[in-house]
Amino acid sequence: MKFTKLMTSLTAAALVLAMAGVSAQAADLRVGVEGAYPPFSWKESDGTLKGFDIEIAEAVCAELNRKCVLIEQDWDGMIPALLARKFDTIIASMSITEERKKRVDFSDKYYNTPAKFVAKKGSGLKITKEGLKGKRIGLQRGTTHQCFMEKMFPDVELVLYGSQDEVFQDLAIGRIDAQFSDSIAADDGFLKTDAGKDFEFTGGDQHDEACHGPGAGMAVRKADTALRDDLNKAIRALRENGTYQKINAKYFEFDIFGG
């Protein structure tokens, strides 16, 4: 039937049109970033991306003499998107962990800050197995913090969110008893804002080497060893020429690179 043939070719054409994307030139460095993790990355009202991760990414590209193409990606799909080659590296405060290393490779760390719980002021929440039992603790799905909570506090009711912003949102309005995240993200993204004025850190720094790893690194595909080495060189250069410190000072009062 002629008609079917015509329709088939029309469909094929429509599909090709829909799928035709722009693939970046080799010289561009395509960087996966998040945009919902202040002060490391967030989105302004005009749609531009801002934050520590964003500036570090741009500094790294400048150091490598490559054009930066920032690609926004929700946290959930970060590693799959890297593996699927939607971008070449992830610069999104991703901690270097053994579990992730099974799938991707990491540069050296570019910062390291401890994780902490945040709860309402005077909540009296005890960070022990008994104290947290049955409590609703919010955190971002697919993070080192999820690994930590599932391992150390299996009796907690975990409430998983797609982005850190949503965790803060629900903590502020009382849907969860506490949240667990990076302390800097909690401090600058929440506690220092108006919404977080009635909240405080509770318990000290939390760390589990297997879950948290040595700090945040830039993820690359396993085969991309050349890119990984380039990124390491760039991170060292930024530390040495003072660019890192300049960016650091814009956001934080102390050096977040860690020891």
Binding site: A18, M19, A20, G21, V22, S23, R85, K86
Partner: peptide, 9 residues
């Protein structure tokens, strides 16, 4: 070598 399936596609 690589076919982009964008969010839109």
């Amino acid at each position: 070598d690589y076919a982009e399936i964008s969010q839109f596609a």
